[in-house]
Amino acid sequence: MSFNEKSAWVMAVVLVIAAVWYFKIVAAASAALGEVAPPLLPLVAGYIILIIILSITAHILVAVTKPSEADDTMDERDRIIANRAGSFSGVLLGIGVLAGLGRYLFDYDGNMLFHIVFGAMMVAQLGEYGAKIWYYRRGV
């Protein structure tokens, strides 16, 4: 398994952990308010900080296990995989944004729109890492 594939696995796990943390707090706040909770800058900042801390820690651990792989540059296969995965991610993001905008047309809830689009960004990034793993495993 190449370092790029290991990195994709690490980031996929990190994003799932951070997304569950974020939406668990949003769901609890929404239940307490009786409506969709507004977006909060400290919560979004906490989400970003959590991703940064977890990804740095996990990548250090992966790099320490096999330092020779950590300095590898992307070869032609890695670039093709990254391009295909990025294209897939863009499609997921577009679908998520359209879903959020469609939902907004029915209830005009800007808080829900924010959370749907923010969630779409999370899903798109997770989809990119998932596609990278798929393509590495498939042998593209």
Rank of each mutant, 00 (worst) to 15 (best):
S2G: 10
N4H: 06
E5L: 03
K6R: 14
S7L: 14
S7P: 01
A8G: 08
V10Q: 12
A12T: 11
V13F: 14
V13P: 02
V14L: 05
L15C: 15
A18E: 01
A18K: 11
V20D: 00
W21M: 15
Y22S: 08
Y22L: 15
F23H: 05
K24D: 09
V26R: 09
A28I: 02
A28S: 06
A28Q: 08
A29E: 07
A29H: 11
A31I: 02
A32T: 06
L33G: 10
G34N: 07
G34A: 06
E35C: 09
E35I: 06
A37E: 01
A37P: 00
P38G: 13
P38V: 06
P39T: 10
L40N: 07
L40D: 09
L41N: 09
L41H: 05
P42I: 12
L43S: 12
L43E: 01
V44E: 04
V44W: 10
G46W: 14
L50M: 15
I51S: 00
I52R: 12
S55C: 10
T57Y: 15
T57H: 12
A58R: 00
H59L: 15
L61P: 01
K66S: 09
P67W: 10
A70M: 02
T73H: 06
T73K: 11
M74L: 15
D75L: 10
R77I: 11
D78C: 04
D78F: 05
I80Y: 10
I80N: 08
I81W: 01
A82N: 09
A82H: 05
G86C: 10
G86M: 12
G90P: 00
I95F: 05
V97W: 05
L98N: 09
A99E: 07
A99S: 13
G100R: 03
L101P: 00
G102H: 05
R103D: 03
D107F: 09
D109E: 11
G110Q: 07
N111H: 14
M112P: 00
M112L: 13
L113Q: 01
F114D: 06
H115D: 06
I116V: 15
V117P: 00
V117F: 06
F118R: 12
G119Q: 05
A124N: 06
A124C: 08
L126D: 00
L126N: 04
G127C: 10
G127W: 02
E128Y: 08
E128A: 12
G130V: 04
A131T: 03
K132H: 10
I133G: 07
W134T: 01
Y135W: 09
Y135T: 02
Y135A: 08
Y135D: 00
R137H: 08
R138D: 09
